[in-house]
């Protein structure tokens, strides 16, 4: 099931073949003094429109337009092919005109963000699944609020046992910060253990000041802290998974308009 999809292998092969054929064609036409920029340009533009249609496909999920996974496969392969066609189209590494520089910059940024996103999509789900427990992104604030309420309750309850507000004070001084909102996001992204270390140190600090009765509540705080750490990891990784399209999609939308402008200018000026 997690094996490589045979169909996508086929598409990879066909695309590689098509791009190869295009590059060969371009080579042979250029050596015949033919103009290839129009052909590669239109193919590239068509491909870009097709790549953009992937987003439209998502909005039209009620219409049977094929599986989104097939679309994604084509989107990824098409995006990679577009890089080659782009290289064939501009011919050099870097265009000279400002308009074309903007276009090329956008194209490369969109490609790079797409590649990054694709990599993240391969890399993060496994980590999310292994880290667990699974949590719907939109529910994280509520879950966090619930944990915080429980943690506060546990810290307060300790006072009922001993008559001292040691744990309550300590919670306000130190642990409240941790339960206030997701913490150590970057560390979670990098897979570090800082939150665990931080939490253990904080809990050890107070442990020696507590009675056995209070320790029951400290134990509860420890459990909640561990759960909160896991929740933070979910939040951090899922945020990244949801954030990269915030770069990719807007840039792609700008790119399309610049590409249309480029198309118009070329038709008016370059013939």
């Amino acid at each position: 099931m997690r094996a490589v999809n045979r169909n996508s292998l086929l598409v990879w092969g066909l695309t590689a073949g098509a791009v190869g054929a295009l590059l060969f064609w371009r080579h042979s036409v250029i050596t015949k003094l033919g103009a290839t920029a129009f052909v590669t340009g239109y193919i590239l533009f068509g491909l870009m429109v097709f790549l953009a249609l992937y987003n439209t496909r998502k909005k039209l999920s009620m219409v049977p337009l094929g599986r989104a996974s097939s679309w994604l496969t084509l989107h990824v392969i098409g995006g990679l092919a577009a890089l080659f066609i782009f290289a064939a189209h501009i011919g050099t590494f870097w265009p000279l005109g400002l308009a074309e520089q903007v276009l090329a910059t956008l194209f490369l940024l969109v490609s790079a963000s797409g590649a990054l996103g694709y990599y993240l999509q391969l890399w993060l789900p496994g980590r999310l699944a292994r880290r667990g427990p699974e949590m719907i992104y939109d529910r994280i604030p509520a879950e966090l609020a619930r944990m915080r309420a429980e943690a506060e309750a546990a810290a307060m309850a300790a006072a009922d046992v001993s008559g001292y507000d040691t744990l309550g004070r300590y919670y306000v001084e130190s642990l409240a910060w941790y339960f206030a909102r997701p913490r150590f996001s970057l560390n979670h992204l990098l897979g570090g253990r800082r939150p665990e270390v931080w939490l253990r140190r904080r809990l050890q600090t107070i442990d020696r000041l507590l009675s056995d009765g209070e320790r029951v509540h400290l134990k509860r705080l420890e459990e909640l802290g561990a759960a909160k750490t896991a929740l933070d990891a979910q939040y951090s990784l899922q945020t990244l998974l949801k954030s990269w399209p915030m770069v990719h999609v807007p840039l792609a939308s700008a790119l399309l308009f610049f590409a249309v402008w480029h198309l118009i200018v070329v038709h008016v000026y370059a013939r």
Binding site: M1, R2, K58, S61, M62, A68, Q121, L124, P125, G126, L128, A129, R130, E134, I136, Y137, Q238, L241, K242
Partner: peptide
């Protein structure tokens, strides 16, 4: 749902909503 593949994009939920 294969959680090692799922990118938590909620496209399935949205598709369900749209239908």
């Amino acid at each position: 749902i294969d959680l090692e593949r799922c990118v938590r994009c909620d496209d399935c939920v949205k598709a369900c909503g749209s239908t």
